[in-house]
Design a protein around this nucleic acid. Structure first.
Lengths: 242, 242
DNA sequence: TTTCATTTGGCTATAATAGCAATCACCTGG
DNA sequence: CCAGGTGATTGCTATTATAGCCAAATGAAA
């Protein structure tokens, strides 16, 4: 569990919230809209966002709307390089292309999965990377595989008393988590009749890899083994223990 | 020029400095080392870094050293998607592979260029992306091309009274900037006898693309024209005006 | 040009934060 | 296993960075 310091820095936390919101906006956004969405006081938002802008992390257009700035791109480049997930993880995943199935790498982010890479047959690499979908973790085989590496208490805390997407309640989810722990992977049915297989990467797991669209017990078993083998080959400097 | 708000947020600024430092570290780092490097008071660094960790932006290992966290990857994915620079810019650049020359996309970051993509012949796409080199802007054709889109006063402010890498002083640099403005691109000699051609992307320019290793006036002219044509084809939603 | 909506600055009060010193945690060597 | 040393972290108090209210400035649309 991630402990706060004795004196957490509130300004930093709220600034990061704004940075996340800006990074994900398809269109430039006004401060008043940001303040409404995030439930923050307007003057404060304006000052934080202007600070982000001054430092290059936000971009401001002529009509005073804000979007992601060059600093975010620089931060992205640095992160990709340092973590090596791009270079090493994707290199490993390229060999799966021959399966002609949807292939993904994702990381757990709160109660969601961020699909850092989500390739469908016929796509180029550039089209597959930087997908921003934050998908409910409990509706994702990667999500389940990664949640299974957490203590039950942590997973419960993540969902609180609210509904758990795709599950009828905690007992239902716990069954799936226990199965994922037993099997070392998570298998989920797709709407189209195939299944998605998610395998954790790293000890402790920091990301997950998945194939989606597998059909038939034999193929599922074969692909599961293949994914697990591949997960073991992603180098350890990609580590991002959750 | 990017104005600060009347009340800039110092905590956010210092937190971002720490985030940048963490993103770029090849190895996990202790708070004491971070504090020394950045000239910040240790308790403060500890609190800011623990706050980053709590929010998922830093990763903490068993020996209490910190590195980039999953949140940075999520932020990277969101940024890449929102800016579209990856999908659209790289797709455009793939056609340059046939030139068998070093190919790059970079963005200006303070007095440096961040090579978001830096491909050498024989590399795969995964190897070329997420290169974190922050290279002196004045030693880079992309850097020069992008600096040329700024007012002279801004460029001067960037270097202050210090030395200007690769130039004998301001007058020398100004000559190069004026040439870049006149030509719509920057051409720099490489150590190996070839040249690097950098072309700004966007109006106003938000990134640069470059080819390196060109030789001979005819080839340089041909490649320059090709780069300029390509720069015009990178879609406008990639925009990141500096 | 005027009007309206949004952004931003100034001011004052306050609470978030800074830094010092003590305590805690971890690692290494005997 | 224990002790010592080093670094991480907390608690406390003072201070200053920041919050929020309100008015001024700015930009866009009619």
């Amino acid at each position: 569990m991630k402990t706060l310091p004795s004196q957490p820095n509130q300004s930093l936390m709220d600034g990061l919230r704004l940075l996340e919101a800006l990074a994900a906006r398809a269109q430039p956004v006004a401060c008043t809209d940001l303040a409404k969405e995030l439930g923050m006081e307007l003057t404060r938002v304006n000052r934080l966002v202007k600070t982000l802008h001054h430092k290059g992390f936000a971009h401001r257009d002529r009509s005073r709307k804000y979007g992601p700035g060059a600093g975010l791109l620089v931060l992205s480049a640095a992160t990709l390089n340092t973590l090596g997930l791009f270079r090493d993880g994707l290199a490993a995943l390229q060999e799966l292309r021959e399966e002609k199935l949807v292939t993904a790498i994702g990381v757990l982010w709160r109660d969601r999965v961020s699909y850092f890479y989500h390739w469908s047959p016929g796509q180029s690499l550039e089209e597959a990377v930087g997908r921003m979908e934050l998908f409910p973790a409990t509706r994702s085989s990667i999500g389940l595989a990664l949640l299974a590496s957490h203590e039950d208490s942590e997973v419960r805390a993540l969902f609180g008393r609210g509904p758990i997407p795709g599950f009828k309640g905690w007992a239902d989810l716990k069954r799936a988590l226990d199965a994922a722990r037993r099997d070392g992977c998570a298998v989920m049915a797709n709407a189209d009749g195939g299944v998605s297989i998610g395998v954790p990467v790293g000890v402790p797991p920091f990301a997950g890899v998945a194939l989606s669209g597998a059909r038939g017990a034999k193929e599922i078993a074969r692909l599961t083994a293949r994914l697990k083998d591949l997960a073991l080959r992603i180098p350890q400097n990609s580590r991002l223990a959750v």
